[in-house]
């Protein structure tokens, strides 16, 4: 059907990724609180797991969901050529002009199946964040077993910071993403029913 903008695999992996990232973030905050390396901790009321052991159980379960769902999302995008069609090319000039247009309320949303340059950058960015989060997560989980990854990420302690920054990127993306959907509610329907 030519009217289908969002195939089933895309909708499914989108929502599974969303659930996984929310669980990983909230349990990750509780894990971070056990030994904070910045000058703050997260409010316990907004963390998941109750105590460190509970948070780790959630985290090490949801990591499989993110790993599987993100792998399917990325593979399907690569194999079908969707990655190039939908997200590339993305030029800095186009990002700036679309950003200015969006902020001045002049950006058009005729076709929610085609992304503007800011969207392209944001969605590519969140893919990069996912790769970073998974790579640094592997170093934290199994630092002895992945020596190359550990070296690439600057060692165990540095991998903690990379993992944290990837989380911060996800949170920033999540916030903007949800605000955008609230501003353009018609963009939500295709992600649920495909059209």
């Amino acid at each position: 059907m030519s009217t289908v903008q969002k195939p089933v695999w895309l909708r499914l992996t989108h929502w599974l990724n969303a659930v996984a990232i929310v669980v990983l973030t909230l349990s990750g905050w509780r894990i971070y609180n056990a030994s904070p390396f910045f000058d703050f901790s997260f409010d316990r009321d907004y963390t998941l797991g109750g105590w460190l052991g509970g948070a780790l159980l959630w985290h090490f379960a949801a990591m499989w969901l993110l790993g599987a769902s993100f792998a399917i999302y990325l593979l399907a995008n690569l194999v079908g050529g969707r990655l190039w069609r939908q997200f590339l090319p993305v030029s800095p000039a186009a990002v700036v002009s679309d950003l200015v247009a969006a902020l001045s309320g002049r950006l058009v949303h005729d076709d929610s199946g085609r992304y503007n340059a800011v969207q392209k950058l944001a969605y590519l960015g969140v893919m990069v964040l996912s790769v970073l989060a998974i790579a640094s997560g592997l170093v934290l989980w199994k630092s002895v077993q992945f020596p190359l990854l550990r070296t690439l990420l600057g060692g165990y302690d540095n991998a903690r910071v990379v993992h944290f920054l990837a989380m911060a990127g996800f949170v920033a993306f999540f916030a903007v993403h949800v605000v955008m959907v609230a501003l353009v509610p018609k963009s939500l329907l295709p992600m649920i029913r495909g059209r």
Binding site: V22, V23, L26, R44, D45, Y46, T47, L48, G49, G50, W51, G53, G54, L57, W58
Partner: peptide, 16 residues
């Protein structure tokens, strides 16, 4: 049995 909720806000957990 409490260990998964503990000090977590029950509302937050239920919503999640």
């Amino acid at each position: 049995r409490l260990f998964l909720t503990g000090a977590v806000s029950l509302g937050g957990l239920a919503m999640l």
